[in-house]
């Protein structure tokens, strides 16, 4: 198939950037979306132009490195699918495709489609862990955890930290990302000791990074390639509010 791509080009953090149009020919339906961009880039190099910078690594939908807004939707049109797992059979001959970086104040563009997501790391840094040093652990089976609790923890922990939730949110809120980690650890007995301070600290850091607030659009849940439920946001809000009023989460 032949496609027309409109891709955001921005030479560096301080450049204003603009959409540029490229035609790609003979795209196979079996290609992944990123392989289609690889072909474009090889073509650009051959023509002496600068290839499009985009983030990617595992290309298996698990590392969370890739991320681009495809026709207005983070990771593109297929639900629960990262850009690297999106395949060209989703598109048809003659399609025009708009490709843009994540857009959020807290994710500054570094070049073209590459953004800086360091803000996510700084949120985790303030409380997204259990404070246990290596060597202190008791036997793994000494803490029985019911299967529903373990499964719920896993559902939240499946977050890949890609940032699609932020890109999808009209407020550029990081609530789903933050709530996924809060919810993962709050579902487990190991996470109880720091449950209150974790919710408080992570939410405060989220605000400090310049992410917006949640106004219940649920665009994040719809865009999440791992299908993380917005219910975790409700749980985090409860933990945060009860902590705010001096109680325990």
């Amino acid at each position: 198939m032949n496609l027309r791509l409109h891709i955001w080009r921005q030479a560096g953090p301080n450049d204003t950037g603009m959409l540029k149009t490229y035609d790609v020919a003979n795209v196979s339906e079996h290609m992944s979306f990123l392989e289609m961009l690889d072909v474009l880039n090889e073509d650009l190099i051959a023509k002496g132009e600068i290839p499009v910078a985009f983030d990617h690594d595992c290309r298996e939908g698990i590392c969370g490195t890739c991320g681009m807004v495809i026709n207005g939707r983070p990771h593109g049109p297929v639900a629960r699918t990262t850009a690297c797992q999106l395949h060209m059979r989703t598109f048809k001959d003659g399609d025009e495709i708009y490709i843009e970086p994540w857009r959020a104040k807290a994710f500054p563009v570094l070049r073209d489609l590459v953004v800086d997501r360091g803000s996510f790391d700084r949120i985790i840094q303030t409380g997204g862990f259990v404070s246990v040093n290596t060597g202190n652990a008791q036997d793994g089976n000494a803490i029985p955890i019911s299967k529903p609790d373990a499964d719920r923890a896993m559902d939240a922990a499946a977050c890949i930290g890609c940032g699609a939730c932020v890109a999808a949110c009209p407020n550029s809120s990081a609530m789903l990302f933050t709530a996924a980690k809060v919810g993962h650890l709050a579902s487990l007995p190991q996470g109880q000791a720091e449950r209150s301070s974790r919710a408080m600290n992570m939410v405060l850091q989220m605000d400090a990074e310049g992410f917006g607030s949640c106004t219940n659009h649920y665009e994040c849940e719809a865009a999440c390639p791992k299908g993380i439920s917005a219910e975790f946001i409700a749980q985090m809000n409860r933990d945060f509010i009860s902590t705010t009023f001096g109680g325990k989460a």
């Binding site: 862990f129 008791q138 019911s146 373990a150 896993m154 190991q190 996470g191």
Partner: peptide, 8 residues
Amino acid sequence: AQGVPFAR
């Protein structure tokens, strides 16, 4: 101990 959600 870290909270890795192993299958149960």
